[in-house]
Design a protein around this nucleic acid. Structure first.
Lengths: 137, 137
DNA sequence: CTAGTTGCAAAAGCTTTGCATGCAT
DNA sequence: ATGCATGCAAAGCTTTTGCAACTAG
C-alpha cells in the first residue's frame, strides 16, 4: 500500500482510497477487465463509490501510463495493468482475451512506418486459442 | 451496376437498391467511413432510408467479405471497401485514418501465433502522420 | 487553505431490436 | 408466392458531463 502511494507520488497524482483500490484490482488481476467489472470488485469496500469515478480514474491511469487500455471485439473498453506496448488475442470460442508478445518484428518496434511517427500501437488478433483447439475447456 | 449485382449474386445475397448504394459509396471512397456518414451520403437518393438498414447492410457486407470493419480511436465503427487483412494508422494531429500495409513480417502473416489459430488480425498504429510532421496541412 | 476528486443523476451517443410493411426472386 | 429486407420508433448500453460537496496535501 505504501509502495502504491509512492508510485502515485512519482506520477504526481494524489492518493485517494478510490485510486488505491482500482490500482490494486489491476495489479491482482492479470486479465483484461471491463470498467464495470472493476467497479463491481471494489464497490463493497468503498461505500457510495460511483461508476463515473472509476471511469475517470482509469482514464487518468491510462494517461499516466499506470494502466493499459484495450479495445477488442468492438464492445466495451477493458483495462489491464500493463501499460507497455504489446498485443492481444481474442478467442471466438471461449471469449477470452490474452496477451500476445511479438518480439523481433521490425515493423512493430519501429518508431516510424511509411513516414508516420508511431507513438503507440495495438495489434488485435482473432481466432481460436490453443486450449479451445485441443478440445479442452 | 450490373457488375455489382453479379458480385451480390456470387455471395448469395439479394440485390436491393439500398445495398447497391452502400456498396457504391464504399467503392468510391477510399477512406474509412462511420456508419452515419455512409447513411448521409445516400439518404437523398433513397427516400425513407433508415439508419438501421445501413447498419444491417454493413454487417452483412462485413460477414460476406464485401467490406472491412475498422475499430480505431475507441469511438465509432468505420467501414471500408477493403475486406482483406491490412492495418491502420490514426494521426492524432489531423485525425485522419490511413491504410498501412506491412509486408514481410512473419508474425503478421502467420496462421498461428503462440499456438493460437489466427483467423483475422488488425493492427492499429497511433501517432503523427508524415503530412502533419512536415508542418503541412 | 484550495486545487483537485468524488458522487449523483441526467444526458449523450452509438447500436440493436421488434414488428409490420414491402419487395426481390 | 414467400422468405428476406426495410423503415420506424423505441429500447439498451456504455460512456460522458455538470455541478455541488468533499478531501488530500
Amino acid at each position: 500500500v505504501k509502495e502504491i502511494v509512492d508510485v502515485f507520488k512519482q506520477k504526481g497524482i494524489r492518493a485517494t482510497p478510490q485510486r488505491l483500490e482500482v490500482y490494486k484490482v489491476l495489479q491482482n488481476q492479470s486479465g483484461h477487465l471491463p470498467v464495470e467489472a472493476i467497479y463491481e470488485k471494489i464497490k463493497d469496500k468503498l461505500p457510495g463509490l460511483s461508476l463515473a469515478t472509476v471511469y475517470s480514474i482509469l482514464e487518468l491511469f491510462r494517461d499516466k501510463k499506470l494502466a493499459g487500455e484495450v479495445w477488442i471485439k468492438s464492445d466495451k473498453v477493458c483495462f489491464e495493468s500493463r501499460p507497455d506496448i504489446h498485443h492481444h488475442f481474442y478467442c471466438r470460442a471461449c471469449g477470452k482475451i490474452s496477451d500476445l508478445d511479438i518480439p523481433g518484428c521490425a515493423a512493430l518496434t519501429s518508431k516510424e512506418v511509411a513516414g508516420n511517427l508511431i507513438e503507440d500501437l495495438q495489434g488485435y488478433f482473432y481466432g481460436v486459442c490453443f486450449k479451445c483447439r485441443s478440445g479442452k475447456k
